[in-house]
Design a binder for these strands. Structure first.
Length: 558
RNA sequence: UGGGGCGUCGUCAAGUGGUAAGACACAGGAUUUUGAUUCCUGCAUUCGGAGGUUCGAACCCUCCCGCCCCAGCCA
């Protein structure tokens, strides 16, 4: 377990007995969007800490803004947290469950002379708030007697006042250097239908008021949030101290930034609503549902969250780390299979016309307990177009005219002829095989520089394969003037006539495997079905050859 | 230029006064019926900068520089 500053705080608290050894954290999403990999960091942190210290972690929906929230989001959030592998037991809460108590706390504040109803317009309030450098000006209603405030607050509650007519404000200090403390709004009028409390309320508490008190009500020990709330901590503490209630400690950490993607809810919504992606679960999305559909595993995501660490400095994690985590997980677990994405027909001229043999293949060299399977071999095969070059460069050691290579688990073959169409495109290869090399070894000990994957034409099953790349072309799309202008046009490439080994024909949606030499792929959970296979590329394999090619290209361009 | 934070390898990140962990990335090499995996090897004489305290400083002090957050009746 890597150490981090939050663990240090908790350990100090355990030592001092500050919370009697309790550790209670919470994950408090607002149900106004789908969860993404940045939320996964917070989920792993909060739930992880509660597990590590034998405490508990609450899932609490911060549903104080009915205009933006809905049940679709609360359901997807629960699904995603569970899928990630975390369990909140009985601790499923909604801030809206506390609306009555929150209202009472507000009344108490009014009675203490610590809150007042301001009937200035939103515009006036903004103008009187001052600026970063200049202090604000007291509202003319700031010293309204408590009785009158109470009466107005009840009128707000009873729907007798219109939206925007007034707001309940904490009476703190209009001259505070911390703008958050310049009499922040606590309650506003919103005549909206709420997904849980229906039409019971027409006033809703603001985040700053609801959050600290919800933590207090649930007796949270460590209230972990992101850096942008650091300014709000003074108010968090003020409300709890003023009311004299149980006081959780707010701790802030830096949110996740990932290269080549965006992780702000606003931008993700823009991608969905602007149809730049097919939905929240588009396999290119950094949402939990998108990653799941792409084929990422919970283990890989959890491992990623552990490796990125937790600290207070703004940072940008390389997407390559996420890819490393999924490769690492799938390398151990995924079945190896052969599939040809861009088929090139190969006829083995000296192979009997109607013979077909069963070749034994290993399911996972990393895990022999996964056994073996039989793959049919015959006279006409497909290999990958990229595995043949008519005029091979120096470091290309795959198939070429006159060259000999191995077909994995099958035979050595030698290319004897190249057949082209009228445009000069290579459409078929003629080869001979060496019957002595069955299984892939030559009795005379001769070596071959390369092993290719292949599929027998008459036995192959067809599939659509979707090749995904980064959604964006630049490392920090969020920094661009218009992040949508940096969208990668080639973020998905759809291949229609891919040829897979026959065993894949009966695979269930969600099945993940390695197409040998190509990458990890997963039967799409939405679109794949028997008879209509659709595979998503999760991630490519590390590829030395691709690297060599890139290296050779670059100097020419420069 | 008010207030709150943060600056350790290309990217994350440990380190909390005793002489710079680890991971990813990258570069070499070995093994390999996946140019995969695995395995070696290399990769910060230096911690934003400058002073100071100390036998000793990434850690303490001072000043400076840079970056992030705050002027929603969003969270």
């Amino acid at each position: 377990m890597p150490s981090n500053f939050i663990r240090h705080i908790i350990e100090d608290d355990m030592q001092s007995g500050k919370y009697d050894g309790r550790v209670v954290t919470r994950f408090p999403p607002e149900p106004n969007g789908y969860l993404h990999i940045g939320h996964a960091k917070s989920i792993c942190l909060n739930f992880g800490l509660s597990i590590e210290y034998n405490g508990s972690c609450h899932l609490r929906f911060d549903d104080t803004n009915p205009g933006k929230e809905n049940v679709e989001f609360v359901n997807s959030i629960q699904e995603d947290v569970q899928w990630l592998g975390f369990n909140w037991d009985k601790h499923l809460y909604f801030t809206s469950d506390y609306f009555d108590r929150l209202f009472d706390y507000a009344v108490a504040l009014i009675q203490m002379g610590k809150a007042y109803v301001d009937t200035q317009s939103a515009e006036e309030i903004r103008q009187n708030r001052g600026t970063l450098k200049a202090p604000g000006i007291d509202s003319p209603y700031r010293n309204r007697p408590a009785e009158e405030n109470l009466e107005l607050f009840h009128k707000m509650k009873n729907g007798e006042l219109e939206e925007g007519a007034c707001v309940l404000r904490a009476k703190i200090d209009m001259g505070s250097p911390n703008i958050i403390m310049r009499d922040p709004a606590l309650y506003r009028i919103r005549k909206h239908h709420h997904h849980r409390t229906k039409d019971q309320w027409c006033i809703y508490p603001m985040y700053d008021f609801a959050h600290c008190l919800s933590d207090s009500i649930e007796r949270i020990t460590h209230s972990i949030c992101t850096l942008e709330f650091e300014n709000n901590r003074e108010l968090y503490d003020w409300i709890l101290d003023t009311l004299g209630v149980y006081h959780s400690r707010q701790i802030e950490f830096a949110r996740l930034n990932l290269s080549y993607t965006v992780l702000s809810k606003r931008k993700l919504i823009e991608l969905v609503e602007g149809n730049h992606v097919s939905g929240w679960d588009d396999p290119r999305m950094p949402t939990i549902s998108g990653l799941r559909r792409r084929g990422y595993t919970p283990e890989a995501i959890r491992n990623f969250c552990e490796r990125i660490g937790v600290a207070k400095r703004d940072s940008m994690v390389n997407f390559a780390l996420l890819e490393h985590c999924i490769r690492e997980d799938l390398n151990k677990k995924a079945h190896r299979v052969m599939g040809v994405l861009n088929p090139l027909r190969v006829v083995i001229e000296n192979y009997p016309d109607d013979l077909s043999e069963e070749m034994e293949a290993i399911n996972n060299p990393e895990d022999k307990t996964m056994g073996t399977r039989k793959i049919p071999f015959s006279k006409v095969l497909y290999i990958e177009q990229d595995d043949f070059m008519e005029d091979p460069p120096k470091k290309f050691f795959r198939l070429g005219p006159g060259r000999e290579v191995r077909l994995r688990y099958a035979y050595f073959i030698t290319c004897t002829d190249v057949i082209k169409d009228e445009t000069g495109k290579v459409v078929e290869l003629r080869c001979t095989y060496d019957p002595e090399t069955r299984g892939g070894d030559a009795p005379d000990g001769r070596k071959v520089k390369s092993t290719l994957h292949w599929v027998s034409e008459q036995h192959a099953v067809n599939a659509e394969v979707r090749l995904y790349e980064n959604l964006f072309t630049v490392e920090k799309p969020a920094a661009a003037d218009d992040f949508k202008a940096t969208l990668n046009e080639n973020s998905v490439q759809i291949l229609k006539d891919c040829k897979l080994e026959p065993g894949l024909g009966t695979v269930e949606p969600g099945f993940a495997c390695q197409f040998e030499r190509l990458g990890y792929f997963c039967a799409d959970i939405r679109d794949s079905a028997q008879g209509n296979l659709v595979f998503n590329r999760i991630v490519t394999l590390r590829d030395m050859w691709a690297k060599i090619q890139k290296k050779n290209k670059k100097p020419n361009k420069k």
